[in-house]
Structure formats: structure tokens, C-alpha cells
Computed example of a mutant assay.
Amino acid sequence: MDEIGQLKTELEEKTKLSEDRLERLRYLQAEFDNYRKWQEKEKAAIIALANETLIKDLLVVFDDLERALPSLTHEKNKAGIEMIYKNFNKILCAYGLQPIPCLGKKFDPQFHEVLCTEKCGKEQNTVLEELEKGYQLKSKVIRPSKVKIAEHVMEETGENNG
């Protein structure tokens, strides 16, 4: 009987040890899964940052190309440059680049940078002119639109207004 009691005690100790090790294994496995997920997010962030830097550098060339289009006079040259421009735009769009719409919209400091104002009859802070196109890469603004906004002028009527 002593031997059976001793074996039961040993079995309980070994069972407890195996349960502890199984629990540690599960914990390590969960920790590894979390690490793997974190690594994947980090990798995606690095790739996105690399794309952002490259696209910012390419925007300078893209802007120059866009400005050159109206000045071309030969139809053959113009058609070729327009094709290059469209392909360039298509590639940038495939990477998530989108122009920021601004004409006629209300000024939003997240998307627009005011360079000047103009007194007119339009509603205060309405974008009147886009001086330089702004862009978003996916949902992040990488270059705000440089704009001219309206400064509302009150119409003065009556004898005592000045």
C-alpha cells in the first residue's frame, strides 16, 4: 500500500509538472504569435514609409510633367507626353496616391495650406484657387494643397456706414 501511495504522489507531481510545462508552452506560443503579428505590422509600416518617401520624391517630377503639358505645341509630342503622364499617374494611383480635392470646398488645415486670401462675395474660408496640388497616400496627407481662400466682404448699405 505504501508503494501505491508513493506512486500516486509521484503521478500527481508529474501531472502537475506536465500541466505547468503545458501552460508555459501555451504562454510561449501565444507570445510568439503576438511577436509574429507585431513583426508583420512593423514590416508593413517600413514598406509604407519607403513608398511614401519615394512617392514624395516622384511628385516633383510628376508636377513638372503636368506643368509642361499645356506648353507643348506639336501634337505628336503632346500625345506622347500625355501618354507618359497618364501612365505615371496610373502607377502612382496603384500605390494609393490620390489628389486632394479642394476647389469650392471649405478650408481644412489637415488638407490645405493657405498661401493667400482674396476679398470676394463668397463664403468665408472657401477655397477659390489651388496653387499647388496636394496629395494623400492612402489616408495620410503627404503634401497639403496650397490654396487661395475667400475672405468674405460684407456689402455695406445705408447712410451711416462710413
Rank of each mutant, 00 (worst) to 15 (best):
V141I: 10
K105W: 02
V127G: 01
L115S: 06
Y95K: 05
K86V: 04
L17H: 11
F111A: 01
F62E: 04
G5E: 14
R143K: 13
R24W: 02
E75M: 10
E10M: 09
E118H: 09
E12H: 08
K138G: 00
E19G: 01
N51H: 13
T9S: 09
K41P: 00
E13C: 01
E129P: 01
V147R: 00
H152I: 04
V153S: 10
N87F: 07
E156D: 10
N34Q: 15
L131V: 13
Y95S: 06
P144H: 05
I55T: 05
S145I: 04
E10L: 11
T117I: 07
R24E: 14
T117C: 08
L25V: 09
Q98E: 14
G158I: 06
P101R: 13
A50S: 14
L115F: 07
R24Y: 05
I81L: 13
H112N: 03
Q6H: 12
E132R: 15
Q136S: 10
V127Q: 02
P144C: 04
A94K: 15
A94M: 13
K105E: 12
G5Q: 13
I91S: 07
T53I: 15
A150C: 13
I81K: 01
S18E: 12
E66A: 14
K37V: 05
Q6F: 11
E82M: 09
N77E: 12
I142Q: 02
V141M: 04
F111K: 05
A50V: 11
T126C: 02
G134R: 00
P99C: 06
Q29N: 12
K14D: 08
L17E: 14
A68Y: 10
L131M: 14
K37I: 05
H112T: 04
G5F: 11
N160R: 09
D108I: 07
E3R: 13
F88C: 03
P101M: 07
A150M: 08
E151W: 09
L65V: 05
V147E: 01
T117G: 08
Q29R: 10
S139Y: 10
L59S: 04
K76H: 11
N89T: 15
A150S: 15
S71I: 04
Q136D: 00
K86R: 15
T53L: 13
Y27R: 10
A50L: 12
F88P: 01
K119P: 03
R36I: 10
A44G: 00
I81N: 02
Q29G: 07
I4C: 03
L72F: 06
H74K: 15
